[in-house]
Design a protein around this nucleic acid. Structure first.
Lengths: 144, 144
DNA sequence: ATAAATGCAAAGCATTTGCAGTAAA
DNA sequence: TTTACTGCAAATGCTTTGCATTTAT
């Protein structure tokens, strides 16, 4: 979502050929139907263990390529690191303030820029972040 | 918004006394009524130039102290760095995908968790991010 | 063949930390 | 005078980059 015009052009050029390497296929398979919103480090650790050794550079390379291709969404909701979401259809997120887990929130929500701003800005997308306590952590809180 | 329970406790302890040092007052003054959503680096550069020399550690120390005290909000909308917002009343943000500027969006928006999730999660807050092109950058785009 | 991806290690930024000296309270 | 803050520099953590080698096409 946060690319300059120049970067978008550059990325378009590079998107010409996408090689299906074993590393990329392994990452792709790990990400498929994955709703855990993993970080690069989690992907590196999990995929590297399950399939074959792989460098961090390759993980990032793949994540960037997939993001460019629109097959992946980079989330900024976690201030510590980027998280990746293979679900690119419109939806929102909830982060548990206790355990840090990120949950999907379906896009039942109609969000519009206030009318006063609508004439001035060309809105491309939006994203709602909910800060909350998840069922498990909420229960633990009550107990203490 | 993103602190663990343990961190919250630790921060509460430290919040006991807040010394009014010249550095902190200078940062506070710079931040007052500032709607530019500056990064730590921008604060360091601007305040350091205008008033007196100051270390990066002090900037972060102050930002953390103010955030803890609830006088400042840390924004995660910019994936590259944290941004700080002295306006702690409920509102949302819009980031220009071309120039990166962040704009305030008044809280005319009612955002609720879908009913299906409301029973399970204890929602503490929410934040809407709009991705857009600002008036200036939108005009430039049309021209090209 | 050739263009792109890999792996490694080094570099780059943003942010944090340890600690001795300094200054609010 | 006590306790917190400052400044410095080193350390950390996430992400990027350069480059020689390998591999998909």
């Amino acid at each position: 979502m946060l690319t300059t015009q120049k970067e978008q052009l550059r990325e378009k050029d590079k998107a010409v050929r996408f090689k299906r390497t074993p590393q990329r296929l392994a990452i792709l398979e790990f990400l498929k139907d994955n709703t855990s919103h993993p970080s690069a480090e989690e992907i590196y650790r999990t995929v590297g263990k399950k399939y074959e050794s792989m460098s961090f550079a390759t993980v990032y390379n793949t994540l960037h390529a997939l993001t460019r291709a629109g097959a992946l969404r980079e989330l900024t909701i976690d201030p510590e690191r980027k998280r990746y979401d293979p679900n690119t259809s419109r939806h929102h997120h909830l982060i548990c303030l206790t355990c840090g887990k990120i949950f999907d929130v379906p896009d039942d929500i109609r969000v519009d820029l206030p009318k006063a701003m609508q004439g001035d800005f060309i809105v491309v997308g939006n994203h709602v972040e909910f800060y909350a306590h998840c069922p498990l952590c909420g229960k633990k809180r009550k107990a203490s």
